[in-house]
Design a binder for these strands. Structure first.
Lengths: 256, 256
DNA sequence: GAGTGGTCTAGACCACACG
DNA sequence: GTGTGGTCTAGACCACTCA
């Protein structure tokens, strides 16, 4: 008998699963709702748990699911838009910029940062830790590296560390002339400390935003901010109300 | 006997593996070099292949490794900086913007895009497919949605589809007054068609850049561009020469 | 055909949250 | 304690590339 079957392109099971579950999320579930546990789901779809998990991981990566150990899997709300536009020519910590200072220590920055700052290898910098909270949720953790030479006036009498010193460093920074800044975004995975601050497991996908602040013809500070990739959409310009989230089903596409 | 062991925080094996291999990459390997295959590596570290793969996946996500089925695992070059700054107030396709048009069809856009364009559900738009090539490599695939109403002058006599029509749509777009644009970046996973264009497997992590183009008080076009997250660092402003890549080795630096 | 990475299975145990 | 997701194992087979 003639096999009318055309080009069997064996779609991986987990990929198909992801599609099926994704469609189910759109039609049968609402935000915050709890899914059946992984063992039940795997049995229901007749696959191994590992295979099911591969599908769930993808959906979580796309911000459609939220999984928490010991609790369960829930339907995630749409990603929140987080403004990271660079147009406002202002130092970090100026005005109300949604960041709260956590700490400040003197450390030797990673080599990559040292190169951006053009400091000597092994030279210490002020390092301000900040946390960005949005809609009651921690969305980003930042390390702001400020060479000692950038804030020469900073009194050593100030608190030697802690939030008070962080504010001191930021205050001194404001006194400088900000000549410009630039920014880069790339994918990374959360270090253990950031993961904890962001309520995620180590290795969770994050969007790393690196910003250079220029003053007096040199790089006066470098900020490395890691945003939760699952819950955040970084916006530039006034696209805060942008409501696309890239996944979302469109079965009808094929119909036409 | 007193257990001097402090707080055994059992670090996952794959996490530790990732660290060890990452350090080995810095010290013992150079860009392009081929790693031993997964079965050998797993045996060498005394773990199951699945565990080893979890570590390699992380390293690939961070852009440090490149894996190709049937070939092997190689050390990836540093991520390339790709300029996506929005400051140049220009329509897509203006001047030399590193994009090459591939195709153009009339399709009904996904719901999310239709909402951005404020078109009726089910309304067709011109849809230009473009590819961005950088350093001899495809780094991004774009879908540019242009409502028919945005380019009323477009001759129906032109090629009804294909690259020629794509150029026609872009040409008509240039005639409009571009009043502004905004941009958002988020993490996604590559659809099957994009994955193929970018020489990746479906589901590969991508950075999705959504751009809205405004003209005459409305959204005249929407672009959804997906960049390879493993090989690209998106830059805004003049940070094209930014050389941070979060991992990177430079043993020679220490010598000086 | 040989060798690679990609998918999948059917188990096991662990860490964590919650009642 | 119970139930959840997270980690890990030791296999198997498949899809792909290349000599």
């Amino acid at each position: 008998m003639g096999t009318t079957q055309l080009e069997t392109v064996p779609e991986p099971k987990y990929w198909h699963l992801k599609t099926v579950i994704g469609e189910a999320l759109d039609s049968d579930f609402s935000v915050g709702e709890i899914l059946p546990n992984e063992r039940d789901l795997a049995a229901r779809f007749g696959v191994a748990r590992a295979t099911l998990r591969q599908a769930l991981e993808q959906l979580e990566l796309e911000g459609r699911l939220q999984r928490r150990r010991g609790v369960g899997t829930t339907v995630a709300p749409p990603r929140m838009g987080v403004d990271v536009s660079t147009t406002e020519h202002a130092w970090p910590g100026a005005g109300q910029d949604a960041w709260q200072s956590v700490d400040c220590t003197n450390v030797v920055p990673p080599q990559a940062v040292a190169r951006l700052l053009d400091t000597d290898a092994g030279e210490e910098t002020h390092t301000v830790r900040r946390l960005r909270v949005s809609h009651g949720q921690s969305v980003a953790a930042e390390l702001l590296y400020v060479p000692v030479s950038s804030v020469p006036e900073l009194s050593a009498i100030d608190a030697p560390s802690g939030p008070a010193r962080a504010r001191g460093v930021l205050r001194e920074l404001q006194r400088l002339d900000l000549e410009g800044q630039d920014r880069a975004v790339e994918l990374g995975s959360a270090r253990a400390d950031h993961a904890k601050e962001l309520d995620r497991l180590p290795g969770a996908p994050v969007l790393v935003v690196t910003t250079r602040y220029f003053s007096e013809g040199r790089t006066a500070a470098v900020s490395v901010a890691t945003y939760r990739a699952d819950t955040c959409r970084l916006t530039f310009g006034d696209s805060g109300d942008l409501e696309i989230s890239e996944h979302e089903q469109e079965q009808e596409r094929r119909a036409s």
